[in-house]
Computed example of a mutant assay.
Amino acid sequence: MTTVGFLYPGHFAEDDFPRMEVLLDAVRLVVSRTDVEEDAYGIDALMRTGAPERLAAGVEELQRAGAESVVWASCGGSFLYGWEGAHEQTAALARAAGVPASSTSFGFAHAVRELDAERVAVASTYSERVTGLFADFLHAAGIDVAVTRAASLGSATEAAAWDLDRVKELAAAADRPEADVVLLPDTALHTAGHEAELEELLGKPVLTGNQVTVREGLRLAGRRAWSPRLGRLFAAREAPPAPVAAWGEGRERAHSGRRGWPGK
């Protein structure tokens, strides 16, 4: 059985992970909750959740559980560090954990490439400014963002209180015909097991924060898993693609041992 570890900030939608564990075969998903100083969707507050000392504090529990990879299960707490800063964040986490490490933000970029998508729509719970910074992160990964939609919630507590109908409304509001995929970048939203339903509504793939976080951890552990309820990302049975290069980088760097994606 493959064991994947997750550092999850606070208590919001961490119950998505045991739900996904049930939906996947022979996979153990272990969650270690990290400290959240302030439940707010401001830039400074989100960045503080991803401080190295906060992440390192949760590593020991995952090591004891035998985690074969570790993922920082926060989108805002990773992409707000910028492209290079997010790499430094996960590199430090990998050193602390002693296993490959990544974050939700990189999980989104890898998932978009795995679906062979070129253009995405972002349905965000964050403010317009924070949402724009997520779009910048995606651009750095070579992903075209067709449109962003910001719900401008104030905290993860608000996001965790949303029911499926609210999530559907946000996703539908962000969708555009020219977008190949719709992204919901917030691990505080409860979405586990609803991805297929969201995709049926929109008629295209939907990527959610906790879904891509689990996929990223499995990718780093070299494990494939499938579940039709978790959407098209978990429907393909082909081998995952090699990590993509950053914006402006060539294919050679994407496949080399030089600095690139976490776990490479």
Results as ranks from 00 to 15, higher is better:
residue 5 G to F: 05
residue 14 E to P: 01
residue 17 F to E: 07
residue 21 E to L: 01
residue 22 V to T: 13
residue 24 L to E: 07
residue 24 L to R: 06
residue 33 R to V: 04
residue 33 R to D: 03
residue 35 D to E: 14
residue 37 E to P: 00
residue 47 M to Y: 02
residue 51 A to T: 13
residue 51 A to D: 15
residue 52 P to L: 12
residue 56 A to S: 14
residue 61 E to P: 01
residue 63 Q to Y: 01
residue 67 A to C: 10
residue 76 G to R: 03
residue 80 L to G: 00
residue 81 Y to F: 15
residue 89 Q to P: 08
residue 92 A to C: 07
residue 96 A to Q: 05
residue 99 V to L: 07
residue 105 S to R: 02
residue 105 S to Y: 02
residue 109 A to T: 14
residue 111 A to N: 08
residue 114 E to W: 12
residue 129 R to L: 12
residue 133 L to N: 01
residue 138 L to M: 11
residue 150 A to C: 06
residue 151 A to M: 11
residue 152 S to I: 00
residue 153 L to A: 03
residue 153 L to N: 01
residue 154 G to K: 04
residue 154 G to I: 04
residue 157 T to C: 01
residue 158 E to T: 05
residue 160 A to L: 05
residue 162 W to T: 00
residue 163 D to E: 05
residue 169 E to V: 12
residue 170 L to V: 14
residue 172 A to D: 11
residue 173 A to C: 08
residue 174 A to Q: 08
residue 174 A to C: 06
residue 178 E to Y: 04
residue 180 D to T: 08
residue 183 L to Q: 11
residue 185 P to V: 08
residue 187 T to I: 03
residue 189 L to A: 13
residue 193 G to V: 07
residue 196 A to R: 12
residue 201 L to M: 15
residue 208 T to Q: 10
residue 208 T to Y: 12
residue 209 G to H: 12
residue 214 V to D: 09
residue 218 L to Q: 06
residue 219 R to Q: 06
residue 221 A to Q: 01
residue 222 G to N: 02
residue 224 R to D: 11
residue 225 A to K: 05
residue 229 R to E: 15
residue 237 R to H: 14
residue 237 R to A: 10
residue 238 E to G: 13
residue 239 A to N: 06
residue 241 P to W: 09
residue 243 P to M: 06
residue 244 V to S: 15
residue 246 A to I: 00
residue 247 W to N: 11
residue 249 E to L: 06
residue 253 R to Y: 00
residue 259 R to E: 06
residue 261 W to F: 08
